[in-house]
Amino acid sequence: MAQRYSSFEKGGRMWLLQRVTAAFLLVVLAFHFFLLHFVHHADEVSFLMSAGRMETMSYYSLMVLFLLTATFHGVNGVYNALVNQGLTGTKRTVIKWTLVAASVVLILQGIRTANAWAGIPLY
């Protein structure tokens, strides 16, 4: 009866990637919270301060990587939750590509925002 299963390996790679991004996010999210709530305070946010941080290349790339991993981790988590609930067939395909499209939009918008601060004219 084993032959009726075909999606060999694929699940495993996503599972591993979900764990790897989790470990990364654990550190970066803690840093993010600490920097933007304890070092800088919520009521003193301004465009220039955000821009000042974003102009540093290391901060910019960290934030872009943060965005990419967070989006993957979150959207893949949502997808898994739905599959666990028994989502199958056409519905599953439709939801999968909707989630992919939403992720693309989120990532593009996030990068445009980061570019606006960093002064990179790609937005």
């Binding site: 939403a102 996030g110 445009r112 925002t113 606006a116 002064g119 937005y123």
Partner: peptide, 18 residues
């Protein structure tokens, strides 16, 4: 994940601001 979408939406006001 819901917050992440909201967060980026709010932050993108930086695009016109720039």
């Amino acid at each position: 994940i819901g917050y992440l979408f909201t967060h980026i939406a709010v932050l993108s006001t930086a695009i016109p601001a720039s």
